[in-house]
Nucleic acid binder design. Sequence first.
DNA 1: ATAATATTTAGATATTTGTCTAAATATATA
DNA 2: TATATATTTAGACAAATATCTAAATATTAT
Lengths: 84, 84
Amino acid sequence: MNEIFKALNDETRRRIIELLKDKDMNAGAIAEEFNISKPSISHHLDILKRADLITSEKKGQFVEYTLNTTILEEVLTWILTLKK
Amino acid sequence: MNEIFKALNDETRRRIIELLKDKDMNAGAIAEEFNISKPSISHHLDILKRADLITSEKKGQFVEYTLNTTILEEVLTWILTLKK
DNA sequence: ATAATATTTAGATATTTGTCTAAATATATA
DNA sequence: TATATATTTAGACAAATATCTAAATATTAT
């Protein structure tokens, strides 16, 4: 839970999540969307991955990232229990 | 949105939220639940308040804190839009 | 095999954050 | 009014974080 909230606590990472909502993308394509160096984006992807919010699959020389919405259930239920 | 996720990105603050889910509490009573100094708890309460996740009302010499579940809607909808 | 492209790792640095103690402020009570 | 209680503010400090550049690794293409 800690890892998830930590991962979500960054505008760049939240935007990455939003990008992956529409379609899977490789690291380079993701990086192009930001004015941030590739290593930094790579670091953000790593944090999202550790939180299990995204998964990665090597496709040739590219690494494709996919959003894992399942893990968001946890946050969802946590919030819902607060609202009653 | 940034403020909300920032506020939620701390175990102590999330526990404070959970405490306030059951009942309103004053600052001292909240602080008693943690092995953390009162000034630190006060600081956490301030962050939660800035995020609008809680509200405070002075009652005599005490300050009573109340959970504001309304603001959690924002997070809820953000997550829900990702899941479709 | 060599060169080019894609991505990550390593190491450095400035900023943010959570915590503390001491002091200040506000209210209640004797 | 003087004292006790409740809470916050101020200032300091160590740990965590986001970013960068340079270098390493992996894959593809010539």
